[in-house]
Write a protein that binds this DNA or RNA. Structure first.
Lengths: 245, 245
DNA sequence: GCGATCTGAAGTGTTGACACTTTTACGGAA
DNA sequence: TTCCGTAAAAGTGTCAACACTTCAGATCGC
């Protein structure tokens, strides 16, 4: 667990709680995992966590069950639970499902977008274009996040929004974290503009298509990099084999 | 909990278990809920369940956390957990997400369908047509289930399949259980035939569209009935108001 | 008779302890 | 040195008990 032995970022000593420890711990642990403080494959030691958070193992275990169901960790009987490690295949699967969900969000939003939401999206779009022009990734990233959040929330389907968020978080478990978020700012923005156009036109089919494609394109960009990485690695391996033999 | 005080349908005394009680209980409880043995709104009494299954409350609570995350139950602090009760709005949301997922399944299947899967689907289709012609609902239902399962599994996306199944189960929590499953056999089969055609043609776009529409149509059929039901009820209420006043 | 308050029962939230499994470290034999 | 077997250590799975909250019924005052 990176560092931090008792950091009170997760204050659960504070209140005459009305919310159970298991819930608080679930959020805390999810944050630890999604933020990358714990790496994929790393083990969640119940006793250690209990000590760190100053609680007993019961609530810890309950929290872990919830995380397991959401796909953040994987439990092995009598051996412990581990931060889920995504294979390339699973990443592709997750992206495809995410694309379908985001496409639905676009469709629903196109059917019911208010002038306020459209204005909000256009504002974020402009800000992102500015950031992209300046190659200011630190500014771009949160805007991009807010843009997607606005669309998903704007769809009016809370079930969809919850699912979508879980999938996005799960994708953060992939080793190449930076890649998951990154990818050509300019290209991405061109896609964003099309998405907004479809919503402004109130064309559900078009909106679904553009939203779907946006995620699908991100998937392709990521997989392309991963594949070339794998190729390089395999080449290096061959090199070593030759040198070693 | 309907009846049943100690029925050993859920035998967990049987084995020198290598699988934790919490997992066994999770499946058992999910079965109890989805099968309708426990009704929406009903409370899951931890002590009672512990006694019934012959275990302590710890594993019961862990199982419940998992069910909570999957959306089968709802926990209220210090008051207990209750079988989730779906509103009409939530049913619509679930159907929309399910439609998106099933559309994706159709698309993926169209891209990779083997002759074996196609033969399997066509076999199920014929059997369903026969059952529909005979108005044999008892035969039709499991075939219909198998048909959808085959498509989702055939998509090759395990993440998608798992999600889809959860959503289907969650829809079973809706009060009008029979309606969720029912709806014109003939109409439904016409849609099935189109779906298979799109898969045979290996046309991803068409497949996605037909699969999406199939679920979407089921949604519309259900909501139409629910709305007319609601209307009737409200009319009766008016009647009573008049009679009462 | 009706409502407010009190009291016990029921139930959830949490804890610490015990049993069994897995891992690791140690020591001896080949 | 290396391999294997053994025993301690670490860790998970499960349980029973305690603290606090909520609920239901009885009692008391009006």
């Amino acid at each position: 667990m990176a560092s931090a032995s008792q950091d009170s970022v997760f204050s659960l000593t504070d209140t005459g709680r009305s919310v159970p420890l298991s819930k608080v711990l679930c959020d805390a642990l999810e944050a630890v995992i999604v933020s990358g403080q714990m790496r994929p494959g790393e083990r969640l030691n119940e006793q250690q966590l209990a000590q760190r958070f100053g609680v007993s193992r019961g609530p810890i275990r309950e929290a872990i069950r919830a995380l397991e169901g959401a796909g953040f960790v994987e439990a092995v009987t009598n051996r412990g639970v581990f931060v889920r490690q995504l294979t390339v295949v699973e990443v592709r699967e997750l992206y495809d499902v995410r694309a379908a969900l985001f496409g639905l969000a676009g469709r629903l939003l196109a059917e019911r977008a208010t002038p306020e939401i459209i204005a909000q999206l256009e504002g974020l779009l402009s800000a992102m274009e500015l950031a992209a022009a300046n190659r200011d990734f630190d500014a771009y990233y949160p805007l991009n996040l807010a843009f997607h959040e606005a669309i998903v929330d704007g769809s009016g389907n809370a079930t969809l929004a919850a699912q979508y968020r879980t999938f996005v978080k799960r994708l953060n478990l992939f080793r190449a974290r930076s890649l998951v978020q990154g990818g050509g700012l300019a290209v991405s923005n061109r896609e964003h503009r099309q998405m907004v156009s479809a919503i402004v036109a109130r064309d559900p089919g078009w909106a679904q298509e553009t939203h779907w494609q946006h995620v699908s394109a991100a998937k392709d960009r990521l997989l392309k990099v991963v594949r070339s990485e794998a190729e390089q690695a395999s080449n290096q391996e061959d090199q070593q084999q030759i040198q070693g033999g």
